[in-house]
């Protein structure tokens, strides 16, 4: 019996530390990977959803991220920062998707797909009293700024964690986040002026 058996309870996934998972990996690599999936899949799914605004794409990205993790030889090594790596790879895949989508001019195709989605398929609803101003404006600023705002204010990562995800210094996180909020404000102000003019 493995001494780490206590870690296997799925409801405790959020409490498993990276160290626990790495320790388990030596005995049972398949289960260690399973723990990584349980621990991070929801957060990565939300992260991907905020960027792509498409639940199916978000699911596909999350699956691809875990396949890459499995094939990353350093993933379970002592110094490896799993959480930062997972968020970084998720971000990169999502922004690639968004860029490709834009490049293809796929807006029509996208809405067509939404209409024809299977009703029993997993879905994600951005609904209710959303702050549409902020969410709409976030899509209109640069990818760097959008990413850092999502990591901080939607994924709830600390400044230190963001520094690890983006592989930049803490001071850079502070200034980039400040500029992102400044840029967001400019876009929202422009929107406000457009609306006032339209009224």
């Amino acid at each position: 019996m493995t001494p780490n058996l206590k870690l296997v309870a799925p409801e405790a996934a959020a409490r498993w530390t990276e160290e626990d998972i790495k320790a388990l990996h030596a005995d049972n690599p398949r289960m260690a990977l399973d723990m990584v999936v349980r621990k991070y899949r929801d957060r990565l799914f939300y992260h991907a959803s905020y960027i792509t605004k498409d639940s199916q794409e978000a699911y596909d990205v999350v699956q691809e991220v875990f396949i890459r993790a499995m094939r990353e030889p350093r993933f379970f090594s002592e110094e490896f920062r799993q959480k930062a790596w997972l968020f970084r790879v998720t971000s990169n895949l999502c922004f690639n998707l968004v860029r490709d989508r834009r490049r293809r001019g796929a807006i029509l195709e996208h809405s067509f797909r939404d209409e024809h989605r299977e009703p029993d398929q997993a879905d994600l609803v951005f609904h209710g009293e959303l702050r549409k101003d902020v969410l709409a404006a976030i899509d209109r600023i640069s990818a760097d700024h959008k990413e850092i705002l999502i990591l901080r204010y939607y994924d709830d990562l600390s400044y230190a964690e963001i520094a690890e995800v983006l592989e930049v210094a803490l001071g850079t996180v502070m200034s980039r986040l400040s500029r992102a909020r400044g840029r967001l404000q400019e876009v929202m102000d422009e929107d406000g002026r457009v609306r006032v003019a339209a009224d």
């Binding site: 999936v37 899949r41 639940s55 699911y59 875990f66 879905d123 702050r131 909020r181």
Partner: peptide
Amino acid sequence: EQRFERPRLVQVEAPDFWRAMDDRLA
């Protein structure tokens, strides 16, 4: 005054998807 309230993401339970992902990862 900027409010970054998380959209209330109502994720319709997706056991099928996660099960499919587990199978694919296996």
